[in-house]
Amino acid sequence: MNGIPRPLVRANQWFQVLSVVFALITGQYWILLLPLLTGLYSLIVGQNPVFWVVRPFLRKPHSHYAMEDPDQQRFNQMIAAVCLVLSLIGFYAGVPAVGYVFAILLGIAAFVAILGFCIGCFIRYQYLRYKQRKA
Rank of each mutant, 00 (worst) to 15 (best):
M1Y: 05
M1S: 08
G3K: 06
I4C: 05
R6G: 07
L8P: 05
V9H: 10
V9P: 02
R10F: 13
N12K: 15
N12V: 12
F15R: 08
Q16E: 10
V20Y: 02
V20D: 01
V21R: 06
V21M: 07
V21Q: 05
F22N: 04
A23L: 03
A23T: 06
I25L: 14
T26M: 01
T26D: 07
G27Y: 05
G27W: 01
Y29F: 13
Y29T: 06
L32Q: 01
L32V: 01
L33D: 00
P35A: 00
P35Y: 04
L36I: 01
L36T: 04
L36P: 01
L37I: 07
T38R: 00
Y41N: 06
S42G: 03
S42I: 00
L43V: 04
G46Q: 00
G46L: 05
Q47L: 11
Q47H: 11
N48E: 07
N48P: 06
P49E: 03
F51D: 12
V53F: 13
R55P: 00
F57R: 09
L58E: 01
R59C: 05
R59L: 09
R59S: 06
K60Q: 09
K60D: 03
H64T: 07
Y65T: 02
M67I: 08
D71Y: 12
D71N: 15
Q72T: 09
Q72E: 14
Q73E: 15
Q73M: 12
Q73I: 08
Q73Y: 09
Q73V: 13
R74Y: 08
I79Y: 03
I79W: 04
A80C: 09
C83A: 12
L84Q: 10
L84N: 10
L86T: 11
L88W: 08
L88F: 10
I89N: 10
I89F: 14
F91I: 14
F91T: 14
F91K: 13
Y92A: 13
A93M: 14
G94M: 12
G94S: 13
G94F: 11
P96H: 12
P96Y: 11
A97T: 13
A97L: 15
V98Q: 15
G99N: 13
F102M: 11
A103F: 10
L105C: 13
G107M: 07
I108K: 07
I108C: 10
A110S: 12
A110E: 02
A110K: 06
V112S: 04
A113E: 01
I114E: 02
G116R: 01
C118E: 01
C118K: 01
I119G: 03
G120S: 08
C121L: 03
C121I: 04
F122L: 13
Y125R: 15
Y125A: 10
Y127G: 09
L128K: 15
L128E: 14
Y130A: 15
Y130H: 15
Q132T: 14
R133D: 14
K134A: 13
A135L: 12
